[in-house]
Amino acid sequence: MNVNVQFTVNGQLQRLSTDPRRTLLDVLREDLGLTGTKCGCGEGQCRACTVLLDGSPVRSCLTEITEVEGRKVESIEGLGRNGRLHPVQEAFIQEGAMQCGYCVPGMIVATVGLLRRNPKPTQTQILDALNGNLCRCCGYGNILKAVQRAVRSVAPAESATSSRTGNPK
């Protein structure tokens, strides 16, 4: 009852035969050895499993493997180019936007997805885009700073943000 599936992951063509009920997350982690994408809940509530599907963030724990047939998947492992980190990865490192770090790949991939469709998001748009991503260390303040830094690295003219964290009221 296996099916053949074909899709690209981080630019590489993958062909595999698998049970159609398996998730993209499990295939990435268990078949392709890409363990950078994490499982935090299995019900799409924490988004540690976020990957880009044709450029848009999706929850790979809710994505059946047959849904990705012929499509383009990007995971945390594929964001760097020519041995250099993606600017969003750089921003997370610069801002110390990680404690245990388990949520970080999902946060970074979600941010990359956001900046691709909206290179200059407002604070509200950032919060809307990331509110589904959980960080149980609750390092939301530094993560927001990292996202803002990434936005600035795309649009350097933007003014510096306040040193305070959290949501402006």
Binding site: E43, N131, L134, Y140, G166, N167, K169
Partner: peptide, 15 residues
């Protein structure tokens, strides 16, 4: 997590 609500980005006050 859908039934046990933990803090998310939008829950963070000014700190």
């Amino acid at each position: 997590f859908s039934q046990y609500r933990v803090p998310r980005f939008k829950d963070v006050p000014e700190i």
